[in-house]
Design a binder for these strands. Structure first.
Lengths: 204, 204
DNA sequence: TACCGACCTATCCGATCGGATAGGTCGGTA
DNA sequence: TACCGACCTATCCGATCGGATAGGTCGGTA
């Protein structure tokens, strides 16, 4: 069983490699950046499982996950992260990741999860996926309608009303209507404040 | 030598405890939240060194550090973090922390650092403190004049040009001038983008 | 059926923004 | 002294924003 670990935290790498090597049946490789991971996969594929740190250099969030999954003959790739939200975990699993591992997991569970995934299963810690729910599904987001969220997303990308209208295929006055509602709900007095509040709340 | 580790990442706790216990001369206790750490210190003080995770529940950044240091007869406390910036590390050291440990450290160095600190020394990894310097003193900030920074600060607070002008005691046209220059330097096409870019870069 | 919430459109208008143009002060340097 | 960069002010104008007012569709529920 061959596993590749890519994480810029040497400590996690060292630990994981040590625990996995102790299993006897597992052969572990480890690198510290996404670029190195890509090189390694190109030279050494296929792996039974690849673990990618969500916050490592070059990773660019889920982009790196998708890139890695597309490599070779369709690699099994799992995300590992200390800070990622439940939303990110869900997006990763939807995108076809082999699993999601929060770094808050005990070493033993972590090793078990890795073996589980290397055998072809999809893994995510139940408590993380459920417990975090209320916290992560931002209270703000619940107050907003679907359209308002779409408009807000455009705003947090620095777009003008006209651009947002074009992108959503609606008229500019409608965008303004949603903006007005958004300001009220977010307690903002202009678009810049609304954008900052949305970012602050971790939306998008 | 008695050491207390407080970190919500079970993996890190397990690893650290294992490595330190292997030393023979070190007795290690471990907890998962700041509240537990406080209880443990009250019951069990003094420790030769206490390691606190910067991002753990109840920690509230440097507040937890200061609280812990003030306990008992003046505890020696070090910060450990996976995500903290150089600025945070410096603030911690200035506040009198025994040291700062980024989680990117290899396991061996980490254990050595802990022992070093437990013996009364102050520790911080040289490369982290220097290498991060250029990154953290944001390149953006260097390109901006003092006035431009003041105007940008107002913008990131969601203020209008008129409000910024009043606060800085200059005329509105002058604020607009600085705005125009800011858009050019930040490669933004409107105030919302400029505000988001500034926040993204960690300014203010 | 009556009503409601989410959504969409149109029109109007004052405020603000974004950019240009033209002028100035002041401290520091070739 | 001549020049430059950082800063400040004023005026103008088209574009955009923010808010109000009035009207509509459509699916779901009392």
């Amino acid at each position: 069983m061959r596993i590749l670990v890519a994480d810029d935290h040497d400590l996690l790498r060292d630990t994981l490699v040590m625990f996995l090597d102790n299993e006897g049946t597992i052969e572990t490789a480890a690198v510290g950046t996404f670029t190195q991971a890509v090189e390694r996969i190109e030279a050494d594929a296929p792996y039974d499982l690849i673990l990618l740190d969500y916050n490592m250099p070059g990773m660019n969030g889920l982009d790196g996950l998708k890139t890695a999954m597309a490599m070779g003959d369709g690699q099994r790739v799992a995300l590992i992260s200390g800070e990622a939200t439940r939303q990110i975990a869900e997006s990763a699993l939807e995108a076809g990741a082999a699993g999601f591992i929060p770094k808050s997991l005990p070493a033993k569970s972590l090793v078990n999860a890795v073996k589980f995934m290397a055998m072809g299963e999809q893994y995510a810690p139940i408590d993380f996926m459920t417990a975090a729910e209320d916290v992560t599904t931002h209270p703000l987001a619940e107050k907003l309608t679907e359209r308002e969220l779409q408009v807000l997303k455009g705003l947090t990308e620095g777009k003008s009303n006209k651009e947002i209208a074009r992108d959503l295929d609606i008229q500019e006055p409608t965008v303004k209507l949603h903006m007005k509602t958004l300001y009220r709900k977010l307690e903002a007095s202009n678009r810049t404040q609304a954008a900052l509040i949305a970012r602050e709340a971790g939306l998008f």
